[in-house]
Design a protein around this nucleic acid. Structure first.
Length: 822
RNA sequence: GCCGAAGUGGCGGAAUGGCAGACGCGCAGGAUUCAAAAUCCUGUAUCCUUUACUGGGUGUGUGGGUUCGACUCCCACCUUCGGCACCA
């Protein structure tokens, strides 16, 4: 009972190889490791076995994947999460291995007249089994008989290898099996003759880091264990190998290998000379996906022939061949569903779902981080008994102890194990000695629920008031970076669902709409290659060589930065101004310390002010686009804000006072029109998150206003309101100057009068065959006949229409007139 | 290799299928100034044409298509950026 409960818990301890990062002094979750390096700081990550805390996020894998569907998120982020979760459907199948000791005439197994799962004579036990067959075959038949009656066992027995496959339709194409090197059945299967080789391979595999495994992904390696298993669908004996291309942490850590229809298996079988058997006929379709290493593309029919002969791997759907009487001829999809049912009925397999997603490694060895509210029971000798106790709610939150030194030591020992004894130990009322859990939570623990706490952050009785939760959540719009796609944005969805299941929040999803702001890159850089020794530029011609042979030997190149006035545009690209044959690379890079292109916002604030920084970031381009930084761009918006300031204040006065041109008068109609058009445009742009265009609207407004000798207060006040979300500090000051008595944060957003945004006369472009030939100015309410007639009066139109026949006139009300002529 | 996003002046970028290049930067010329900074004004895709800021051609990565009309929609390709990468 206790063990079953522990198997279901959302938080559990588990000993397994984990991502240990010595430089950060902590273990990391899979999501925090990229290309074998830490996501923060790019430090090397090793795999070492450690007992760690995990959160059972895989239990939510299905919901985390399917409930993405109704969210208003970028499709690319949804896809990244779905790929990371990596749900796949297939089947688990047991391959019989018996005790592992196969004595007697084992070759006879393959000549045994096996007729498939449900041949006309029923299960294999219907065949006469005599002593001439080896013991393992008799055991196999007895086992088949047994599982046919008792059903597929919940947990695999020691006498089978349980595999997971998404292609049960290729069971007849199995020519070997592969276990992960760490698989528990390896010992039992390894024969005396193969023992040394197997042990050596396992040893090597255990030292390989994730990075090594990826780097070596090009070439497969493995070792034959010497052992065999029996394929349940045809009774064949199948050699069992170990190889590190099979991962212990996915599926069952064991696979059936079908080299005819799986590229990895094909590569492996090709290398080790294992039989490749075709069981899927591609027919006349999808042959483009077939793959033939090191050879020229084949014609359609030749490619099909190569697949059928097992010379080329084919992993797409098709029609079954060589798959026994019941299955041959079936389409891949039909085959899958039929054999899955048949296997289940025979107790040999079952439908199964697997996830690429792994449980979330949730403990860290750093000092900073929330301590776990857990105590380990200690026995009389001070050793942990393995039993845990949980802190009472009243003891929460657990605060970190005061420690003089809390820098990471570079060992996996948690920092808190050096905490003062008073913090570390206590005795329970029943006399049991207890020691605190000394791991801490990762930084994600806080970001998983901060948005809930923000709503009600002073509440001492609950983490959020249920009424407030109902009122404020879910979050309508969440702006965040795409780099959190499979980190924070996945983790917090998981926590939110747990809270939802327990009734603490009323929606299953925390963030309704997600917008990814694009990354800001460093300033654009010009770089060109230079020979290190001679410091000469590498010309386009030399570049193809890559190395220069000089009297002193081989000369290498380095890349060097150029200033904008050293380069010139030439055709599509850039070249060095003084050496037009030297190609210059022009692009912006991700900000990084190592590249030295980091822009510190503090120094921008210091030089230009927080409003300029904010306004520039909004003005750079679309919110979601990746954009390079430009100091000159900051200067531009800074100039705009200065112009706004001078337009409203008197810059010749010593103190801050209103510009004499700003007066409390009735605005003229053109002034009102400009204001209302601006209100309309800015409001629209805010709704669509088009902040860059809303700022250009404000700039256009300003370009007009600076020409006005009288600037009515009733025009300037709404303008300041429009500006305030983008440049709040300067807006606030101007607001007060314009007579605002309280902060403009409490003012309501200005509205526009529809009558004032329509013009009385409009310019209508006139096209001939879709080309612009003239523009006419007409009354906004003019009808088609009037506009067409006016267009025909234009000189340029008259001359263009001369001698031609108007076939058709396209008129788009208020937009354009187009004469189609012959 | 697989998946996703994006390609428009010297640069960042703008354009419900309807005037391509708004707005800003940069650059050039001018005003102001003893001078400079700051500020203000004018011009600024490209080629041809004209006494004329005249008129015309070309032009939104490449090639096709749909349409009266395409930066925008469809097909194929190229390039760049981002993500994943033995997941059976």
């Amino acid at each position: 009972m206790r063990r079953y409960q522990d198997q279901q818990r959302l938080a559990y301890q588990h000993e397994a190889p984990v991502n240990w990062c010595p430089a950060l002094g902590t273990v990391l979750a899979n999501e925090e490791v990229q290309d074998g390096k830490s996501e923060r700081g790019s430090h090397p990550v090793e795999r070492i076995p450690l007992r760690q805390w995990l959160l059972r996020i895989t239990a939510y894998g299905d919901r985390l994947a399917t409930e993405l569907d109704n969210l208003n998120w970028p499709e690319s982020i949804k896809l990244m999460q779905r790929n990371w979760i990596g749900r796949s459907e297939g089947a688990e199948v047991d391959f019989y291995i018996g005790s592992g000791e196969w004595t007697g005439n084992v070759d006879a197994i393959s000549s045994f007249p096996y007729r498939g799962l449900f041949g006309p004579y029923g299960v294999p036990s219907a065949y006469p089994v005599t002593d001439e067959y080896p013991k393992v075959l008799r055991d196999f038949i007895a086992w088949m008989h047994h599982v046919a009656r008792s059903g597929f066992p919940r947990e695999p027995g020691d006498d089978v290898l349980r595999i997971y496959t998404t292609r049960p339709d290729t069971l007849f194409g199995v020519t070997y099996m592969v276990l992960a090197p760490e698989h528990p059945a390896v010992d039992r299967l390894t024969t005396a003759g193969q023992r040394a080789a197997v042990d050596e391979y396992r040893q090597q595999a255990s030292f390989k880091s994730d990075l090594d495994r990826t780097e070596l992904a090009k070439t497969k390696s493995g070792v034959f264990t010497g052992g065999y298993a029996i394929n349940p669908v045809n009774g064949e004996k199948v050699p069992v190998w170990i190889a590190d291309y099979v991962l212990i942490s996915y599926g069952t850590g064991a696979i059936m290998a079908v080299p005819g229809h799986d590229e990895r298996d094909f590569e492996f079988a090709d290398k080790y000379g294992i039989e490749i058997r075709c069981v899927v006929d591609p027919g006349d379709q999808l042959l483009l996906q077939s793959y033939s290493p090191g050879e020229k593309p084949l014609s359609k029919e030749a490619a099909r022939q190569a697949v059928l002969e097992g010379k080329v791997v084919y992993s797409s759907p098709g029609f079954a061949v060589n798959s026994g009487r019941q299955y041959t001829g079936l389409s891949t999809a039909d085959f899958k569903s039929k054999i899955t049912t048949d296997l289940a009925n025979a107790g040999l397999g079952r439908k199964a779902v697997n996830y690429r997603l792994r449980d979330w490694l949730f403990s860290r060895q750093r000092y900073w981080g929330e301590p776990f509210p857990l105590w380990h029971e200690l026995d009389a000798n001070g050793q942990p008994t393995g039993l845990l106790r949980v802190d009472a709610e009243s003891a929460l939150p657990i605060t970190l102890p005061e420690m003089a030194d809390f820098k990471p030591t570079g060992t996996p020992e948690p920092m808190l194990s050096k905490a003062p004894e008073s913090w570390l130990y206590k005795t329970a009322p029943d006399g049991t000695k207890l020691k605190r859990e000394t791991n801490t939570m990762p930084q994600w623990a806080g970001s998983c629920w901060y948005y809930l706490r923000f709503v009600d952050n002073k509440n001492a009785a609950a983490f959020i008031d249920p009424q407030l939760e109902k009122q404020w959540l879910p979050i309508d719009l969440y702006v965040g970076g795409a780099e959190h796609a499979v980190l924070h944005l996945l983790y917090s969805r998981f926590w939110h669902k747990v809270l939802f299941d327990r009734g603490h929040v009323h929606t299953a999803e925390p963030f309704q709409r997600l917008v990814n702001q694009g990354m800001i890159l460093g300033e654009v850089e010009f770089t060109a290659l230079r020979w290190i020794e001679s410091q000469r530029w590498v010309t386009a011609e030399e570049f193809l060589g890559g190395e220069l042979i000089t009297p002193s030997g081989v000369e290498k190149t380095e890349s060097a930065r150029l200033s904008p006035d050293q380069v010139a545009k030439k055709g599509e690209g850039w070249v060095v101004k003084d050496h037009p044959d030297v190609v210059v690379d022009c692009r912006a890079y991700k900000m990084s310390k190592s590249r030295g292109n980091v822009i510190n916002p503090d120094s921008v604030v210091e030089n230009y002010g927080a409003d300029s920084l904010r306004l520039y970031e909004m003005f750079m381009g679309p919110l979601e686009a990746v954009k390079p930084w430009s100091m000159q761009g900051v200067e531009g918006v800074s100039r705009f804000l200065a112009r706004v300031w001078r337009t409203i204040t008197d810059d010749r006065a010593d103190d801050v006072r209103l510009n004499p041109a700003v007066q409390d008068t009735t605005p003229a109609e053109p002034q009102l029109r400009l204001l209302h058009k601006t209100i309309k445009a800015v409001t629209h742009d805010f709704d669509t998150l088009g902040f860059n265009t809303s700022i250009s609207r404000l700039m256009e407004f300003m370009n007009e206003v600076t020409n006005w000798s009288v600037r009515p207060i009733s025009i300037m006040r709404p303008f300041v309101l429009l500006l305030s979300p983008l440049a709040p500090h300067i807006a606030e000051e101007l607001w007060q100057l314009l007579g605002g008595t309280t902060t403009l944060a409490f003012e309501s957003w200005p509205t526009f009068d529809p009558k004032l945004v329509e013009d009385a006369v409009i310019d209508v472009p006139v096209q001939i065959n879709g080309k612009l030939r003239a523009k006419i100015t007409v009354d906004a309410k003019a009808d088609q006949a009037t506009i067409e007639a006016a267009a025909r009066r234009e000189d340029s139109i008259i001359s263009q229409l001369e001698g031609k026949t108007v076939v058709k006139v396209v008129y788009v009300p208020g937009r354009l007139v187009n004469f189609v002529v012959k």
